[in-house]
């Protein structure tokens, strides 16, 4: 490994790569995608720079309150992102999603800390923020897919759902097929990525670790840990997100409330 640090020129050359896909967008007439991409890249660089500075500060200061505040902000931001992306009403669905993220993240972090990585203290920012962030980011994707699929399927086949209730099904029995489909859709990409890992692609975290100078064996160990955790947290947060939202999303008579969807839909 020649030099682990990337110079500004190297970073600039990396960003220069964007010229290729953006030219393709221009030729294909995807003008709005060019603007969106540029905006996304600027946001990504800005946000990551900010995070790097904050992490550097958190790693050195070890301020417990600040670390907790950081985690809380991540969870709150993740919950509102999920609800907004599912085109659901934040007012009703925010709390169930928030609760599902809190429970699953807390469980996974405690489990990893106590049973898997014994050498980190729980409030070590390298553990709590880095792993917590990675888990939260991935469970966010799963929960968005799962929750959208669950409520959109129900909305689109509401007549069938009512018919199932009329045939004698309890609400849980009538909702079970929708729950199964949404959970499966949410978690299948993670399963596929686990199955193809190492052959089809080398995961980002592992690439980063190896480029950063780590032993590939060590990188693999952490990658396996992360993938199993991502799978677990994705499955649990999606399932709990749906289960916690049921009480709010249905009338006492088991009918889906219209108000849980955003009006523009």
């Amino acid at each position: 490994m020649p030099n682990n640090e990337l110079s500004f020129i190297a970073m600039g050359l990396c960003l220069f790569l964007l010229v290729l896909p953006l030219s393709l967008c221009y030729v294909a007439g995807l003008r709005s995608l060019i603007t969106d991409t540029l905006f996304a890249v600027v946001r990504m660089v800005g946000q990551l720079l900010l995070v790097a500075m904050l992490l550097k500060y958190l790693f050195t200061s070890n301020n417990m309150l600040l670390i907790i505040a950081w985690i809380l902000t991540m969870v709150i931001f993740a919950s509102s992102t999920v609800v907004k992306n599912c085109n659901l009403n934040l007012k009703y669905l925010f709390m169930p999603v928030l609760l599902s993220f809190f429970i699953t993240l807390f469980f996974l972090l405690v489990y990893l800390n106590v049973f898997v990585l014994g050498d980190y203290s729980f409030f070590d920012p390298r553990f709590l923020i880095v792993i917590g962030g990675m888990l939260l980011g991935n469970s966010l994707r799963c929960t968005i897919v799962g929750l959208s699929q669950f409520y959109n399927d129900l909305k689109n086949s509401h007549k069938q759902y009512l018919y199932t209730l009329s045939l004698g099904a309890t609400r849980i029995e009538a909702l079970a097929p929708y729950f199964r489909t949404s959970l499966s859709s949410a978690i299948r990409p993670t399963v596929a990525s686990m199955a193809s890992m190492g052959i089809v692609f080398i995961p980002g975290m592992m690439t980063g670790q190896i480029l950063g100078g780590s032993n590939p064996m060590l990188a693999i160990q952490y990658q396996v840990m992360i993938m199993i955790s991502i799978f677990t947290v994705g499955m649990l947060s999606t399932a709990l997100g749906i289960l916690f939202s049921l009480k709010i999303s249905f009338t006492p008579y088991g009918i889906l409330r219209d108000c849980i969807f955003n009006k523009k839909d």
């Binding site: 086949s157 007549k159 069938q160 009512l162 018919y163 199932t164 209730l165 009329s166 004698g168 097929p177």
Partner: peptide
Amino acid sequence: RQKIAYVSQGVELF
């Protein structure tokens, strides 16, 4: 509900 058999218009079987 257990006393009622309901068949809606354009019923959707599953």
